[in-house]
């Protein structure tokens, strides 16, 4: 019963993630690849056979297919760019992973941004305007292009 309730309250569009995920560290697909490969090597270095679970295989395959950034450095750069904009973790990864090309597209896939009513830590209104988002998306597109 409790589970049904919590599911109803969940809404990623409004950043209602519930429970431990509200402040959790989200990952870009390109970062996922790094972590999973590290995990794979860990076992191999100990001379143990690594038998990946189906979940592991599918996740790695998925992350590679939709990685968007050709290397970890590019992903880190994109994340830095996104972090500078007072965005929530979840928004950072939605934009970082889907790479929308316009502010309208960004807003359509993640309704929580930009929200003029949202306040930052000091209580100031959210400074992120539509132009800022366009600029941000262009910056990310540049990062992707130069790391190809």
């Amino acid at each position: 019963m409790a589970r049904d309730l919590s599911e109803e309250e969940e809404d990623a569009q409004q950043l209602k993630l519930g429970g431990g995920f509200q402040r959790a560290q989200c990952l870009l697909n390109a970062e996922v690849i790094g972590i999973l490969e590290q995990r794979q090597h860990l076992e191999e270095n100990n001379n143990q056979e690594f038998t990946p679970t189906p979940v592991f295989d599918k996740s790695l395959e998925y992350a590679k297919r939709f990685r968007k950034y050709n290397n970890l450095a590019a992903a880190t750069e994109a994340r830095k760019e996104l972090m500078n904009r007072n965005l929530e973790q979840f928004e950072i990864c939605v934009i970082g992973n889907l790479c929308p090309v316009s502010a309208a597209e960004a807003k359509a896939i993640q309704a929580s941004l930009p929200d003029p009513y949202r306040k930052d830590k000091e209580g100031h209104p959210d400074p992120l305007s539509e132009d800022d988002i366009e600029k941000l998306l262009t910056d990310i597109a540049h990062i992707r292009r130069f790391n190809n």
């Binding site: 599911e7 969940e10 809404d11 990623a12 569009q13 409004q14 993630l17 995920f21 990952l27 996922v32 972590i35 999973l36 995990r39 979940v55 996740s59 998925y62 297919r65 939709f66 939605v94 992973n97 889907l98 896939i109 993640q110």
Partner: peptide, 14 residues
């Protein structure tokens, strides 16, 4: 490292 889908989330699929 977990994969957790959320209602309302937009994501890419095959």
């Amino acid at each position: 490292l977990v994969f957790r889908p959320f209602k309302g989330e937009v994501l890419e699929c095959v």
